[in-house]
């Protein structure tokens, strides 16, 4: 009913409240700023969620076997380890990394000219798990018996804090959106209170000619809601534009490269302006009801 009243065009009702350029501009600016921040918080939250999921899935399905042994035993132990892995349920693929691949792993730290072949390097075996996964404790027992130099790293140790950090970041994003909505409501309430107080004479005249509380409140509610909607739409458009022009850090950017929206998530920022308008509607209505009661 409130929304129906809001959408019904009533030019006369809109005109009973005197235009106030300064308040209007401040309300629109606040709404635009809050929408801008909300869209970024939304992007951050969604990106964090996406990263948490990707990291979780990718790391959960991969593990590494490191074989440290004397150079003359390294090939034999690698072959033994591969045999063990081939017969381990839950292991989809096991592949020893080539010397070039191992060098590439060390390149970020030691540069491209590292003579890997002259260093006592362990052999790394990349393990890809089936969706069901393997029994890591059982595998460790078998390896300790058959490949004494093998150390299994199933990534659990560093996967958990990474996923937890990304999940916390996602939660933080949603909390930020909640706080932004609350702050928007508080600001609109303050602005509406000020407008209602400044227009006490208007309210007196309207009551004198038979206006109901709903009519008087409606005039203020419509104005603040539409101002907020306009400001939030502007802020959302600017935020989407800013996200679109964020520099592409490529794969090296990791998490930073993922900030933004993907797929149907692009619809979500479009919800911000109507949501801000809804917050404004209820905030102004509550303020109007309170002030009208006080002005009795």
């Amino acid at each position: 009913m409130v929304l129906k009243g809001l959408m019904t065009s009533d030019a006369a009702a809109d005109r009973v409240v005197p235009p106030s350029g300064y308040t209007a501009r401040l309300t629109m600016f606040s709404a635009a700023t809050m929408a801008f921040l909300a869209v970024f918080a939304l992007a951050l939250s969604l990106s964090a969620g996406r990263v948490a999921q990707e990291w979780g899935e990718a790391l959960a399905r991969s593990s590494t076997l490191r074989i440290s042994a004397a150079p003359e035993e390294l090939s034999a132990q690698t072959a033994a380890a591969l045999r063990v892995l081939e017969t381990t349920p839950g292991v989809e693929e096991a592949r020893p990394l080539s010397a070039e691949e191992q060098q590439a792993l060390l390149e970020p730290w030691f540069g491209p000219d590292l003579p890997v072949d002259t260093l006592p390097m362990p052999q790394l075996i990349d393990i890809v798990e089936t969706p069901e996964g393997y029994d890591s404790d059982g595998l460790r027992l078998r390896l300790s018996a058959e490949v004494p130099g093998a150390v299994l790293d199933d990534h659990t140790r560093w996967r958990r804090p990474l996923v937890a950090a990304a999940s916390r970041l996602r939660l933080l994003g949603w909390v930020s959106i909640g706080l932004i909505a609350a702050a928007t409501g508080a600001m609109i309430t303050l602005a509406a209170n000020a407008a209602l107080a400044a227009n006490a004479k208007v309210i007196t005249v309207l009551r004198l000619v038979g206006a109901t509380d709903a009519y008087i409140a409606g005039a203020f509610v419509r104005r603040f809601t539409l101002r907020t909607l306009g400001g939030a739409a502007l802020g959302t458009a600017l935020a989407i534009g800013a996200i679109l022009v964020l520099p592409d850090a490529g794969e090296a950017g990791g998490f930073l490269a993922g900030i933004g929206f993907q797929g149907w998530h692009w619809i979500l920022p479009l919800v911000v302006p109507p949501l801000a308008a809804l917050v404004a509607l209820y905030a102004t209505q509550a303020a109007a009801q309170r002030v009208l009661k006080e002005l009795t």
């Binding site: 005197p18 005249v205 009551r207 509380d213 009795t296």
Partner: peptide, 23 residues
């Protein structure tokens, strides 16, 4: 308040200071 307001539509009031909306 609303019932009083609606009743007031059947009562015309003229004030000394008129009470207009100046805009």
């Amino acid at each position: 308040r609303d019932a009083v307001a609606i009743s007031r539509r059947r009562i015309g009031v003229v004030h000394q200071d008129c009470q207009f909306l100046d805009h």
